[in-house]
Design a protein around this nucleic acid. Structure first.
Length: 280
DNA sequence: AAACTGTCCAACCGCTTCATC
DNA sequence: TGATGAAGCGGTTGGACAGTT
């Protein structure tokens, strides 16, 4: 019963780290067709990867708007708090940190925060009330009893002190950089319709934030209330009003040349739409 | 300098959910 | 309404790298 794994029949299906060439092929295809319909990606691109692998590579690494590198105390506080509220619902937690992927948050929790929270927990303590040490000292740390609105917003605000990334994923060469640049430049050019969608998305996003903040403030938490937010999902779409300058930042981020500065710029731009009416 | 150990994170695996027929 | 297939999600793994002995 049940369907076989999508990669089971994979004679010749490649696994392991992606090469820059594969990245270019994938970005090129998505630029033309948009994300989604992943099954068709290997068929149409000739990539020797299963559809799942293509989707993961896109959502966890190639997708515009992803921030890599160290988590800020703001982000730590939000993750710790949402994990206490929602459990290991990484996708839901990630919806409140639009620049981070669920995989990234999950990894960070497992490698850093889980230990940190455990260490900080009182013997009879309740993780819900336990704040990380560095978060307590942070003026923007989210506390359920403090002004939650601004604190939660901190999670999606521009990150001003973004450190150098230690990402070791294969970075494209200069030639590949140019290819990806061309691909994304075309893709990022916004249409009027997309711009209008952006405004709606931003308005919805603000409402979502307000709602989430008020929900998190309450003692009676209903998990379903904090479910994945469509407006937040839109935040991870390519940068809104993407000018050439915006694209350059995205490109810099993607190519890892100046990750810190690039992300500072990108995070300052409200994401939410792209050239084609592709929302994901 | 080499061997060992620990940490990090990209990617994979398998289960669940959702949409379609 | 059940079967099927595609996508989404969370847990886990394995390789690369850093730190220690």
């Amino acid at each position: 019963m049940g369907r076989p794994p999508c990669c089971d029949n994979g004679v010749g299906v490649k696994k392991g780290p992606w090469t820059p060439e594969e990245d270019i092929v994938l970005v090129s295809y998505i630029q033309q067709h948009g994300p989604g319909n992943w099954r068709s990606v290997p068929e149409n691109t000739g990539l020797m990867r299963c559809s799942k692998s293509c989707r993961l590579r896109w959502t966890n690494y190639l997708r515009p708007g992803i921030k890599r590198g160290n988590f800020t105390p703001h982000e730590e506080g939000i993750i710790i708090h949402l994990q206490a509220l929602l459990g290991n619902k990484w996708a839901a937690i990630a919806s409140y940190l639009p620049q981070r992927t669920d995989n990234d948050i999950k990894n960070y929790w497992n490698t850093h925060l889980k230990k940190k929270v455990k260490r900080l927990q009182q013997p009879a303590g309740d993780s819900f009330q336990t704040a990380p040490s560095n978060a307590v000292t942070s003026p923007n740390y989210y506390s359920p009893t403090s002004s939650s609105h601004h604190s939660l917003q901190a999670g999606v605000q521009p990150i001003s002190s973004y450190p150098n990334t230690t990402c070791t994923t294969s970075a494209p060469s200069n030639n590949e950089a140019g290819a990806i640049s061309n691909l994304l430049q075309t893709w990022m050019r916004p249409s009027p319709a997309a711009t209008a969608n952006c405004k709606i998305a931003m308005q919805e996003f603000q409402e979502e934030q307000d709602a989430a903040a008020s929900i998190l403030c309450k003692d009676q938490i209903v998990t379903s209330d904090v479910s994945k937010s469509p407006a937040l999902e839109m935040m991870v779409a390519p940068a809104m009003g993407a000018s050439t300058a915006t694209f350059s930042l995205l490109e810099d981020w993607l190519l890892d040349d100046m990750p810190g500065q690039a992300m500072d710029g990108l995070m300052g731009i409200s994401a939410g739409c792209c050239a084609d009416p592709i929302m994901f």
